[in-house]
Amino acid sequence: MGALVFYSEFDDPTEWSDALKACLPELDVRVYPDVGNPDDVRYVLAWKPPAGFFAPFKNLQLVVNLGAGVDSLTGRDDLPEVPICRLSDPGMVALMRSYVTFAVIRYARDMPDFEAAKRRKEWHYIHPTPLDRIRVGVLGLGALGSAVARGLAEQGFDVRGWDLSPKVIEGVTTVSDPTQWAGFLGDLDILVNMMPLTAGTRGLINAEVFAALTPGTKFVNASRGDVVDEPALIAALQSGQVGAATLDVFIKEPLEPNHPFWQMENVYITPHLASITVPTSAAKDVAESIRRVNGGGAPLHQIYPKAGF
């Protein structure tokens, strides 16, 4: 079967090794840089490996991106000519759904106002708005975005979804017609960004997008920081055009101490943890892709980094 090399600065290699061996007991799991004989290596499971990482592995058959987003691979000129796939992990999906649901409910139930009232020691009543009157737009309906939109609809929100290609999601009004873009943006109470980072989406959410929103619309970004024009978002938050924002991702991470977001009362910050890959569930995906490639087939969730998806 050959060996698999694991690389990540953020994940526990022991947890991954145990999970992979539970699915494929015969798999030889090696943790970078202790790769042994590189000619033994048939598979790589990695997140943001350094430049030149793949060069020693002449017998590579499969690369698995340790996550759902592929922007860490786009633009690289050292990728091997082998199938490359991403993970689609139920645990990761559940975490993303929970994060966005929390962020949306926090605004829908006026929690920032109650948090401020508590600091003032003030009993501050706000009559709740029925959830089906709160219009939530999900921008990007890929694997994670579709799950987020579906989860919000199940909570009872009026959910609208936008994607570049037509999508059908139960309980969600979906739009892909570019002529309806402005109408989609202008009819929301909360906008959630789930767009992947590609050459075409970098800076997509800019001053024009914020200007098209109804004044006071809330914004949630749980995708990638570079999809958003940060100076434009700061200006929109300062003017009140965007009423508040929940931000899990940023152009530069960690967020620098002098960044304006830290000083803004209407910005809720989390340190890029909306979703993580869960080894015990994701390892099943990796094992199945290995089996398929060994059988001469294509892996699960194959991606094409040069095309950006």
Rank of each mutant, 00 (worst) to 15 (best):
W181A: 10
P80I: 04
V35F: 14
G67S: 06
Q302C: 07
A19S: 12
Y125I: 09
A68L: 11
V172H: 05
I303Y: 08
G161Y: 06
R160Y: 05
H124D: 03
E170V: 10
I105P: 00
D77G: 11
G297T: 09
I134E: 00
V41I: 15
Y7D: 05
A232D: 04
P215L: 12
V63L: 12
P33D: 11
P166M: 03
A307N: 03
V267M: 05
A149L: 12
W162R: 09
L233F: 07
D40Q: 15
G216I: 11
A108E: 04
M264S: 07
A143V: 14
D39Q: 13
K252R: 15
D78M: 12
V136S: 09
L164V: 12
A153F: 11
L152H: 07
D28G: 01
E26T: 13
L45Y: 02
T270H: 05
K118V: 08
R97D: 00
V82C: 11
A19G: 04
E122D: 08
D28I: 09
T14M: 09
M96E: 02
G140N: 05
A22Q: 12
L144R: 04
G137Q: 06
A147Y: 07
D18F: 00
S275E: 13
P128S: 08
F114M: 10
Y268N: 04
A143W: 05
I205L: 11
A108H: 03
D71V: 08
P166N: 00
D113M: 06
V93M: 13
V138W: 03
P90H: 04
L4P: 01
A245M: 03
G91L: 02
P257C: 12
A19L: 02
G137V: 09
S176T: 05
P56G: 03
M96V: 03
H301F: 14
V209N: 00
A274Y: 02
D18C: 00
D110W: 02
R291P: 05
L185C: 14
L87D: 14
Q241E: 07
D229Y: 11
V5P: 05
A149W: 04
P178W: 10
D158I: 01
E208H: 10
D71M: 09
A236R: 09
D71Y: 01
E115W: 10
E115Q: 15
L73D: 02
T214K: 15
R133H: 14
A222Q: 02
S17Y: 01
C23Y: 00
G243A: 10
P33E: 05
A46P: 06
Y107D: 10
V220A: 01
L152S: 08
P254Y: 04
E26R: 15
H259G: 12
C85R: 07
P254E: 02
G171V: 10
D229T: 13
I234D: 05
F184C: 12
E230V: 07
T179E: 10
E81P: 03
A199E: 14
F114C: 03
L237H: 12
P33M: 12
P38A: 00
K306D: 15
F6H: 06
V242M: 06
E230T: 12
Q263Y: 04
F6R: 03
D113I: 03
T101W: 04
K21V: 11
S239C: 06
C23V: 11
Q263R: 14
L45E: 00
V209R: 00
D78I: 08
G52M: 10
I84G: 05
R106H: 13
Y107I: 00
I84M: 15
